[in-house]
Design a protein around this nucleic acid. Structure first.
Length: 193
DNA sequence: CATGGGATTGACT
DNA sequence: GTCAATCCCATGC
């Protein structure tokens, strides 16, 4: 499997970018790549009612319900016709912490967006935002904040999946306290970018 | 049409 | 560490 796939590059490039919705903004500190050629991806089975968005042009938002409870947000990558997306797994809260706290029912900043289900709840992202544009909104992807230093990025295996578990397609801002699950200290030296 | 399985989280032992 | 909540959707009869 080619490691130079666009969606894998995009997953790393998105770390440091901002995600914004309804008065709340966070900096992406953790992502995972998913591609139609590997079975953990919803597009692996082809274009279905759920996965159709994954095959659209890049820049669409793919939102689906996980475990019947949480909405998970992905950014569609790769040209139209190829099913792939980057799952946004964690944010560092930047603006609108009060709105996030109200939606989350928690106040500590580290509890607001440190997981894929947490950040969608904090930003108010729901299934109605599936198949919307991350450029035109209402959920918007933005460049890194001014003065934001591009973080060192560490790679590892994706979390919570049962297929293609060996692919190192999870990317985190090194040493961020806002990631969904910290890395074992011993692994934290493995920077890839 | 019935069924089974999650890209998770929070509460509890 | 364990475990239930809860609903959408893919699959199979």
């Amino acid at each position: 499997m080619a490691l130079a796939m666009r969606v894998v590059d995009a997953a790393q490039a998105l770390v440091g970018c901002t995600l914004e919705h309804d008065g709340a903004v966070g900096v992406i500190v953790e992502t995972e790549a998913y591609h139609e050629t590997e079975p953990a991806c919803h597009a692996f089975v082809g274009s279905t009612g759920r996965s159709r968005v994954l095959f659209e042009a890049p820049g669409r938002l793919y939102v689906y319900r996980s475990y019947g409870i949480h909405a998970l947000a992905n950014v569609v990558v790769e040209p139209a016709g190829i099913g792939a997306a980057v799952l946004v797994r964690a944010l560092e809260p930047l603006e609108g912490l009060e709105a996030m706290a109200a939606r989350r029912g928690r106040t500590r900043p580290v509890d607001l967006c440190s997981g894929p289900g947490k950040l969608t709840q904090a930003l108010g992202i729901e299934l109605i935002h599936n198949d919307t544009s991350v450029r035109d909104g209402p959920v918007r992807l933005g460049p890194p904040p001014r003065g934001w230093e591009r973080p060192r990025i560490v790679a590892g295996e994706r979390i919570g999946i049962t297929k293609a578990v060996e692919l190192p397609w999870r990317f985190c801002a090194a040493d961020s306290v806002h990631v969904s699950r910290p890395w074992p200290a011993a692994m934290r030296g493995a920077a890839v970018a």
